[in-house]
């Protein structure tokens, strides 16, 4: 077995009565990677995570975590995984420290060791101030940290987080993200989310799932490059409209253009170049030559959001094209 991979999924299929949640999914995650699982609701993210964490078995296909099969070595795999399900369920009547201790003991840790680990994760997740409080009385951000602390308490190799930042306010999101980023230095992390900037900020690699299949798997940077083939250039130029029109018509490298007047003399030109060339130097040179005033010249980079929308709505794209 190749031990470089933390997760190896091959040809994973999960069928529920009546519908297929995941079909023929294959991917690998290396040790120490932070991988983001993206996809619209119902794409099969949670199902995949539940199978990985041995909550339920796959209909067919094999899943290995750290070289062990999740079906035959379920107990050993569970010991190596820290899993936080969607909505982060906790026992609201317990106190934070009591809950973490209970979970550590449940995961088979010795009393003394569990006490030490609870101290460590309490500190790590910033729960020291609230460790004696009842979980039901905590704010959502703190509860999320309790869930994270629970996922970490038994020193797992792999951390699986299902939508860890959902329902948090921006400050809380920021601190939870930072926490996850820090975890990525020492652990392998698999997170699912629909918040795209999150993935761009945290992950080394993105898997976009759609209708139970992987449609894109690459790093956020590579995806950018992949998509830039159809990037646009925006130029705001002060010049008579007719002159601009005539100029763009003659410009061989420009496939389409769009003009719209803004305040004063300025016009906003959206230019789509052929073959994804970067025409900014040429446009600047042109403006200088003709004495136009150029106040903005940018290249529209496709954000992950565009990629996401594009790959998860291939039907609509098809109709347009």
């Amino acid at each position: 077995m190749n031990n470089d991979f933390m997760i190896e999924v091959s040809d994973l299929t999960k069928r529920y009565a009546g519908h297929t949640a995941v079909s023929g999914l294959s991917f690998t995650v290396g040790r120490g990677e932070i991988v983001g699982l993206l996809g619209p609701n119902g794409a099969g993210k949670s199902t995949t995570m539940r199978i990985l964490s041995c909550y339920m078995p796959a209909t067919s296909g094999t899943v290995r975590v750290a070289g062990m099969d999740v079906f035959t070595d379920a107990d050993e795999v569970r010991r190596r995984i820290g899993y936080m399900p969607e909505n982060n369920p906790l026992h609201p009547e317990m106190r934070v420290r009591e809950y973490l201790k209970f979970r550590a003991r449940l995961k088979g840790m010795a009393r003394k060791h569990s006490r030490e680990r609870v101290d460590v994760v309490t500190e790590q997740c910033g729960l020291t101030d609230v460790s004696k409080k009842i979980i039901g009385h905590l704010s959502k951000g703190y509860r999320q940290r309790v869930g994270l602390a629970d996922a970490l308490v038994h020193e797992p190799d792999l951390i699986i987080l299902d939508e860890p930042t959902i329902g948090l306010d921006p400050n809380q999101i920021r601190s939870v993200r930072q926490l996850i980023k820090d975890l990525g230095r020492t652990h392998t992390v698999l997170i699912s989310t629909h918040i795209l900037p999150e993935v761009e900020m945290m992950c080394n690699r993105v898997l976009i799932l759609h209708k139970g299949k992987i449609v894109v798997a690459d790093s956020p940077d590579n995806l950018q490059k992949l998509m830039s083939g159809s990037s646009q250039i925006i130029a705001e130029i002060a010049a008579p409209q007719d002159e601009l029109r005539a100029c763009w018509e003659q410009f061989a490298e420009i496939e389409y253009y769009d003009l719209s007047p803004t305040e004063g003399e300025f016009h906003r030109c959206a230019l789509t170049p052929r073959n994804g060339m970067d025409l900014r130097p040429q446009i600047f040179a042109l403006a200088r030559e003709r004495g136009w005033i150029l106040r903005e010249l940018t290249r529209n980079r496709y954000s992950l959001e565009d990629i996401y929308v594009r790959v998860t709505h291939p039907d609509e794209e098809g109709e347009e094209g």
Binding site: R50, S53, C54, Y55, D75, E76, R78, R79, I81, Y83, M84, P85, P89, L90, H91, R103, L106, K107, G108, D150
Partner: peptide
């Protein structure tokens, strides 16, 4: 919490 319970060993 049944899910968190059943994903422990």
């Amino acid at each position: 919490t049944f899910e968190t319970l059943m994903t422990t060993p």
